[in-house]
């Protein structure tokens, strides 16, 4: 029977943290790319696509992430494939992240004054040119603080993937609790590690927001 010292617990948790970070990055980058694609569909001039994207975001924002993970896990299984937890976790988190990012970014694009659209149209720019040169560069500036802020939600969201069997920080916490019978220490440490990951992101988001508000006042 091996005894776990405090350092053993911490070391094992930190190893698992790597997977939390990797899954967060994959979800955030994947969700960002999908979100960008959905954004173009959402604000485009098509008649069909915007409502479709709207329903998509309503569905993902109106249901628990845990249910989405379960449905991804068992839904992929319906196709007769043996679904590894990382695949279901990654898929659900990417779809979920995209649903939130597209709404955040839509707000940023809509915050651009209408005159900017009209001015660029009067210069004979096409829709794509307007987006590329006029709208997106300005919207991007507004979008950075809330996007960084949302990354905190993504990191916290990855904790749920432990329930479908993906081994990351939370799962390691559960396993270590079962091995050491020290839930107070283990979950306390797990919480602190999440805090160490999320707090800097929150602070950066807040700082950027304040900086932008100051810039707007002048």
């Amino acid at each position: 029977m091996t005894q776990f010292t405090f350092m053993d617990i911490l070391r094992n948790l930190l190893i698992a943290t790597e997977w939390t970070v990797i899954l967060s990055l994959v979800s955030f980058i994947g969700g960002g790319l999908l979100g960008l694609l959905l954004l173009f569909m959402r604000i485009g001039k098509s008649r069909v696509l915007p409502p479709v994207v709207k329903i998509y975001t309503e569905l993902f924002q109106g249901t628990p992430l845990l249910m989405q993970l379960f449905l991804a896990f068992f839904g992929l299984g319906l196709f007769g494939i043996d679904v590894p937890p990382w695949l279901a976790a990654g898929l659900a988190l990417v779809l979920w992240t995209a649903a939130f990012l597209v709404e955040i970014w839509r707000g940023c694009v809509e915050a651009i004054p209408k005159g900017q659209w009209e001015a660029s149209a009067s210069l004979g720019m096409s829709y794509v040119e307007q987006m590329r040169h006029i709208i997106l560069p300005q919207a991007l500036k507004v979008a950075i603080p809330p996007t960084v802020g949302f990354s905190v939600q993504v990191v916290k969201g990855t904790a749920l993937t432990s329930i479908i069997g993906f081994t990351e920080l939370s799962k390691a916490g559960t396993v270590l609790t079962n091995a050491t019978f020290q839930p107070f220490t283990v979950y306390g440490l797990v919480a602190l590690i999440y805090f160490a990951l999320c707090f800097p992101l929150s602070q950066v988001a807040r700082l950027l927001e304040r900086k932008m508000n100051v810039a707007h006042r002048h």
């Binding site: 969201g157 904790a159 432990s162 107070f184 999440y194 805090f195 999320c198």
Partner: peptide
């Protein structure tokens, strides 16, 4: 406020349910 906003709800729940009885 900062502690709660920067940690997952599930861990808060586990800490309260599994961790606090130890205390």
């Amino acid at each position: 406020v900062e502690l709660i906003r920067n940690t997952p709800f599930m861990i808060q729940l586990f800490f309260i349910f599994f961790g606090l009885p130890a205390a």
